[in-house]
Design a protein around this nucleic acid. Sequence first.
DNA 1: GTGAAAGCGCTAACAC
DNA 2: GTGTTAGCGCTTTCAC
Lengths: 336, 336
Amino acid sequence: MKTLYDIAKATGFSTSTISRALNNSGYCNPKTKAIIEKAAKEMNYRPSNAGRVLKSQKSDRVMFCIPDIMNPFYFNMIRAISERLSLNDYYFLLSYTMHDKSEEFKYLNLLQEHYADGMIMVSFDFNEELVEEMRKSNFPIVATNMIPNLKEDDNFDIVYVDHIKAMYIATEHLILNGHKDICVVVGNLSEQTSQERLSGFERAMNKYNIEFSDDNIFIGDYTIDSGKLIAEEISQSKKKFTGIVCSNDLMSMGIVSKLQYKGFDIPNDFSIISLDNTEYADAIHPSLTSVDMKQYELGNLSCKLLLEKIIDERKGSKVIRLEPELVIRESVRELN
Amino acid sequence: MKTLYDIAKATGFSTSTISRALNNSGYCNPKTKAIIEKAAKEMNYRPSNAGRVLKSQKSDRVMFCIPDIMNPFYFNMIRAISERLSLNDYYFLLSYTMHDKSEEFKYLNLLQEHYADGMIMVSFDFNEELVEEMRKSNFPIVATNMIPNLKEDDNFDIVYVDHIKAMYIATEHLILNGHKDICVVVGNLSEQTSQERLSGFERAMNKYNIEFSDDNIFIGDYTIDSGKLIAEEISQSKKKFTGIVCSNDLMSMGIVSKLQYKGFDIPNDFSIISLDNTEYADAIHPSLTSVDMKQYELGNLSCKLLLEKIIDERKGSKVIRLEPELVIRESVRELN
DNA sequence: GTGAAAGCGCTAACAC
DNA sequence: GTGTTAGCGCTTTCAC
C-alpha cells in the first residue's frame, strides 16, 4: 500500500500539495498537478479510506438494515436507496437481522462507532427498548414503520406505509367480491406489524358485520415454507373458507403452490389476496391480486430524509405516511 | 461523540490504560477497569471505527460483490458468507453491480482504498481487463467463476461450479426422457458464463447426435420478465419444441407462468428444466426440476479461503471446483 | 505556488 | 499497575 508520503518521496512535493492536486481542493500548479497525478498512477496509489474518514469525520456511507435479505419486499427499497445514494456519491452497507432483536441492537451499536453516517432501519417491531436506543444515537436514523408513543423531541424521521389500511383494503376487496368465509394469514403476533395487519383485517370484517374467531387466523413467518404449511392447515380446517387474506407475497406463493399441488383451483376453490405486490405476484399463475406497499417510494423518501439530515444537517423529526394501493390480478374471483 | 480523551479527563487515567481496560488487551487493575467501564457507559462512549482501522490496519470487513441483489441464486451464498463471517467477528458489505463492468471496477477500486480487508466477487464475465485489475489488488480476492488463462503466479483464489457440466446434465436429462425438440435459454453471449452454459447444451446435443441450430437458442437476461418474453417467442416459434433448458430459475418462472397463462400445460405441452435450484423452484406449480448449483458451499468455501488469506495470511492461489447436482421435481415429463 | 505542522481517535511499545 | 509517546494516512490552516 502506497501513501501520500510515498508520493512525496517520489516527487519531492509535500503531502499538502499532493492532497490538493489529487482532490482538486485548493490551488495547485497545473504542471505540479500533472507530475503528481502521473506518480500516483505509476505507484498505483489509492487513498486510505480510514485516514480520510478519521480526518473528515464523514464516512460517506449509509447503513440499510432489513429483517430479511431474501424477501423480495425489500428489493425495490434497496433499488431506490442505492439509486439515490449513488447520485450523492454515497455507498450503502446492507445488513439483515433475521427478525432478531439482538441483531438490531448490534447494528445500532455499529452505527454509534461511526460505521456509517446514518441508517435506514426496517424492523417488524419498534418496541420501546429499541426506540430508546435509537433516541441515544449520535447519528441520524430513519425508521420505516409507524412508531407508537413518539415523543415531542424525538430526532429520528419516519416513513411508513399504513399496514392497517393495507389489510383493510385487501379484506374489503374479498368481501366486496362476495366472500364471507375469509381467513387471514399473519406473522408472529408479538411483532408490531403483525398486530397492525391483523387489526386491519378485523376492522374490515367488523365493518361489514362478518363473524370470525381465532379459527380464522393463521400464523406464519413470512416465508414460502410457512405458506405451504398454512395451506395444509387451511385445506384441512373444520371451518371452510373461500377467501384468504395473506400478509405477504412469499407466504401467498407458498399457499398457492401447495393448494394447486393438492388439486385445488385458484381462484375457483380459493380466492387469495396478498400484500406487497412484489415482482413475484406477477410471476406465478394465476397472478396474485396484491396490495402495493409502495416500497420504492418508501426507500426513496427515507433515503431523501436521511441525506437531508446528513448533508444539510436538518434537525428534528419528519413523519411521512404512504398510502397502500390495490393491484387487481387473477387470484380473486367473484362469488355469486 | 465521546472519545478516549473524554474518558481520560473524567477518570484521570491515561488513554492507554483505558484502551487496555475496554479492549481486555494487556493488564489492567480490576478496580481501575470497573471505574473506566462505568465512566464509558455513563458517557455512552463508543470507539471510533475509523480510528481503530487506521491504527490497526484491519477493517474487519469483507466485501461481497454480486451482479444482482434480487436474484435468489445468491441468497444461499449470502447466508453462508454471513454465517461464517459472524463466527469470526467480521462484517460484510454487500454490493451489486447489475452486470455493469464499470461498477465492478468501482468496487475493486473501493477495495484498494481499504474499504474492506478482502472481497468475494461474483461476475458473469471475468474478462482479461477485470482479471488484470484483480492482479493489481493489494487485498485478497476470491472469484466465484472459472477464470480462463490463469497465470502461474496469480494470487487470487477461485471457487466455482462447473456451468458447462450443469447445462450438460440438464440437457441430458431432457434427452434421456425422450425429448429431441429442445430449445435452450441463456443470457447475453458476450458474457463468459452464458457462453459456458450454451456450450454445455451443445455438448449434450452433439453427444446424442441431435441436430439444432440458432433457432433453438433464445437469449434473455436472467430476469423473470425476460422469461416471459421468451415464452412468447417459444410458443410462436416455427420450430416446435417439447423441451426447454433454461439457464436459471427466474427465467424459468417467467416462462412457466406465461405459458400457463397462454393455456399450455407444464409439463405436458412443454417440459422445462432449470438451473439454480433456488427456493423458488419449489414454490411454483408444477415445481421445477432444476440443477443445484451448490450456492451455499460456494459461499461457504469462498469465505473460508478469503479468511485464510486475511487472518492466516496464506499466500498463493487455490482453485476449488464444485459439482452441480440434478434435483428432479415435476416440470419434466417422459415422452413416449 | 508550496510547505510545515497539527490533529482526527485509536493502539502498542516502552518506560517507570 | 499505569503513563508517555509515537504514529497509522489523511486534510487543512496558516505561514512564507
